[in-house]
Amino acid sequence: MTYELDPNPKFAQYKHPEALVSTEWLTANLGKPGLVVIECDEDILLFETGHIPGAVKLDWHTELNHPITRDYLNGEDMAALLSAKGISRDDTLVIYGDKSNWWATYAFWVIKLFGHTDVRILDGGRAKWIDEGRELTTDSTNRSTTDYPVIARDDKNIRAFKEDVFAHFGKPLIDVRSPEEFSGERTHMPNYPDEGALRGGHIPTAASVPWSRAVEEDQTFKSIEDLTDVYINKAGIGAASDVIAYCRIGERSSHTWFVLKYLLGIEKVRNYDGSWTEWGSAVRVPIVKGSEPGVVPVGF
């Protein structure tokens, strides 16, 4: 840890209080050396309409994905990206964004694939910062380039592939999409266009916990009691120490991944980023329709 923790008592309840900061903490620490604020939004123009002073923009669509293969950047590309943004390996990164930090946690997950140590989420995200009337600017941020080292991406610990999901059957699997996507009534989010899964339904045995159940109306994370009730009790994770979360393309499930791993402190949590667009289109993989989780498939 390179930076002081936010002493906010709410965060102390969580297993990893070091993964969150409050708007108050950020206001007090803004501009200090070794602290880089990153905005990552679903709407890629929001940053330009006004952002936290000194924040750098990270574009989930154009910057984090490999330009050709359906994959993330490799170590060289990530080093070049973070160097260009003026980020050093030992910097404390505070990430925030729109939509309850949905994309912020996605960026957090991708950066963690490269093992950056001190990464934190701004609790409440962009909306809370704005609702509290805190400062925004449209001034562009110019940070001197750095020399971020080339770190091999680690796909083993926090990322799951289709084969890993097969090997995981029998352990908790969390489907964070909407109930309609879970049951198979639709293959995409309500009000979002269809993005091409060929079958509707869910992965056998998955519990349905829409990602937004982890957040309050003001977009901050729920208390540890509420999160325990939602995930450990109701979704049946119980004492399990190995969980996989998925959604449609791995974004919404990054949010749940963050909650399970950093707030609830489950030892091994992986995000299956292939998610439904892969599972629901792959040939001869088992699918369950309807609102029940279904049973462990046999013969696969």
């Binding site: 709407d43 890629i44 123009l45 929001l46 330009e48 309409t49 729109d98």
Partner: peptide, 9 residues
């Protein structure tokens, strides 16, 4: 809405 500038564009 203002919070969806891309869509507004």
């Amino acid at each position: 809405p203002a919070e969806a500038p891309t869509t507004r564009g």
